[in-house]
Design a protein around this nucleic acid. Structure first.
Lengths: 205, 205
DNA sequence: TGTACATCAGTGAACGCGCGTTCACTGATGTAC
DNA sequence: TGTACATCAGTGAACGCGCGTTCACTGATGTAC
């Protein structure tokens, strides 16, 4: 077994450094501003060095998306498990985790859901996004079983929940929310809170 | 007053043709695939011709976004006014119009809400997006006045509604919805239908 | 422990191409008289 | 109605630059004996 990533080799861990710097650039200047040579300079290596870790630009982006889906899943698990045991609280926690992830990991988020999302092309990536998706699916099912969501087909409920948090995250990340008029720190829990109240009230209708 | 756009001049109406062809390319291949010289060729003119109508690429994209916001507003107005007079039906109609617009005008939609949205930079554009936004705002207020939505601050309700339809539209346009598992033609009305049911049930809680 | 060799992560110059943009020009349309 | 001139929308070749990617190389680390 190879121990390849050990720190203290030539650079330390150039692969991860390249990912980290990329995410920072994408976060602040957008995906189009990511330039592999400038990236290498910022990471303190020469322009050819990244090609010892990524075959090309697309592979670097795929690695970023993969890391992003992993983190998203983890943060959703953590928040879900830290929430009260009732399914509605768990759903609410997952929703807040999703938006919170997008807000504080904008670089990852942009790459994960960019046009012609890479998930469609890379088996490993689509598996990672599936795992995150199933977390949400599971909690919506819990809500149904507890009569805290309308019975019947789970799919549309899941897509509605996902749409709500994804829409809020996207509008935020793309700067479409007029921050002058809204206090974002207050808006996010308020809107995702609607997610938690939406299903139970529909079930009780 | 200048009549500049009259058909039958040199090209006819190159400005609009360039917009139309761009939208088609962006729809099918994404924004990054838009190439001004290839665009000119597809429009049947030489590579320098577009610069008599747009100062640069950014101005072309701004024109596309502007046209998009205008069309979005119009389609929301039409659907709203064709719906039954009760506010919930009107809200539902606007939501379906929004998603329907994104699905059938993907090229426009991509430009309108791309990273670092141009709306932030161009006064004319942000006015156009404001107008569309206010339509939604107005109908949510109608719901509140009819006790068909929770009373109190309108803002969070509007952002929740917008997030829901924008999220669904975005997931769709970016190909993030696993179309193998869902029939899209059925999903859209089902999810946007939740929008219409969400507020009234919350109000009755 | 020391030496010879293999491997691997860097260097940095250069290649090459895609593409936005410019520019001197040409030809068509509109206007003045 | 015809002629002279201004204007404007095209042409198409060329510029220039950003940037992904390659390549021959160097130096550091790991391994065999």
């Amino acid at each position: 077994m190879r121990v390849k990533k050990k720190a203290g080799y030539h650079h330390g861990d150039l692969r991860q450094t390249l990912i980290d710097v990329s995410v920072d650039v994408i976060d602040r200047q957008g995906l189009d501003a990511l330039n592999l040579r400038a990236l290498a300079l910022r990471a303190g290596v020469s322009s050819g060095a990244p090609y010892h870790h990524f075959a090309d630009r697309a592979e670097l982006l795929a690695a970023i998306a993969l890391e992003g889906f992993g983190r998203l899943e983890q943060v959703m698990i953590d928040r879900r498990d830290a929430a009260p045991a009732d399914p509605v609280s768990r759903l609410d926690a997952i929703g807040q985790a999703y938006v919170g992830f997008a807000v504080s990991n904008t670089g990852h988020f942009r790459v994960m859901f960019r046009d012609n999302s890479p998930a469609a092309r890379n088996a490993e990536l689509s598996a990672a996004s599936q795992k995150a998706f199933r977390l949400l699916y599971g909690v919506v099912e819990e809500c149904q079983q507890a009569a805290a969501a309308p019975a019947g087909d789970t799919g549309p409920l899941v897509y509605a929940a996902w749409s709500l948090v994804h829409g809020l995250a996207t509008l935020w990340v793309d700067g479409a929310l007029p921050t002058a008029r809204v206090d974002p720190a207050r808006l996010v829990p308020e809107v995702t809170g609607l997610l938690g109240r939406m299903f139970p009230t529909l079930a009780r209708k």
